[in-house]
Write a protein that binds this DNA or RNA. Sequence first.
DNA 1: ATCTTCTTTAGAATAATTATAAACAACGAA
DNA 2: TTCGTTGTTTATAATTATTCTAAAGAAGAT
Lengths: 136, 136
Amino acid sequence: MTSKQEFIEKLRNSSLRPTKQRINICEVLFNRDKTFHFTINDLFNLIKDKTGEKISLATVYNTVHAFHKKGYLKEIPINSNQTYFDTNVTDHHHFFDVKEEKLIDLKNEDVGPIEIQKSIPGKKIKSVEVLVKLED
Amino acid sequence: MTSKQEFIEKLRNSSLRPTKQRINICEVLFNRDKTFHFTINDLFNLIKDKTGEKISLATVYNTVHAFHKKGYLKEIPINSNQTYFDTNVTDHHHFFDVKEEKLIDLKNEDVGPIEIQKSIPGKKIKSVEVLVKLED
DNA sequence: ATCTTCTTTAGAATAATTATAAACAACGAA
DNA sequence: TTCGTTGTTTATAATTATTCTAAAGAAGAT
């Protein structure tokens, strides 16, 4: 359980003004034990349900993008009609159950180290992500 | 160089009627040495340029989806505004240049072996794909 | 307090994709 | 070949996720 005050500090330290909306989003996203996969729409509905306060969809987009940019959220690379985000920003990978359209976390120790032996001049590696598709 | 006749047979064998449009798409997609990454829009423009015949965007969508379903195309799992497809349906990995929105193939030997040490009961691994995002 | 800057917001704009339904083309049987 | 059936193409409309806009509001600094 993280206190509201800690979220406020975290936001300030990130040059993000601690608004009511951002604090609410923090509570929904980061007051959790387990990692959390979500879409913008999931989050939008959860905020209404959990905080009882209304928020604009645009603000959810703005905030998620801001958090993503600051490295507090990670985008999960799967093709879907909606973009998925993950509160677990540590290097880790995913199973994707194709039939059930469900994401499952892979702990880092579940996947051996990945060596990339090719490089592109002028570019550096930003992330290395594995998607393991599952079938029955 | 694959002949038009071979495409016609391939289509028939897949219970897809060999229409002029589908054959044109086959020529653009599969008459190649190297693997080919594309979006629907890329393909739509290429068909106009290469065959000189007009085609409806809806037909390109229909056909790409049909080919994907039959396993002749693979969807590349990146989050982008557009969906990318690949004519190389074998397991392989990709660089994605985030700035230029460009995909680059990684040969299998460019990536060390990937060990997945977790399994989900009742499910088996269908594919293991690595996406390496690049930045400047 | 006041001024500046950042943030929220509703709604409009954009853009990829999917749905619709009428015209058309391929197929198979007679 | 001709006819009837079924599958396909097409233009266009509809849908949907996301981004943009510009005005109102809130936070921070002086």
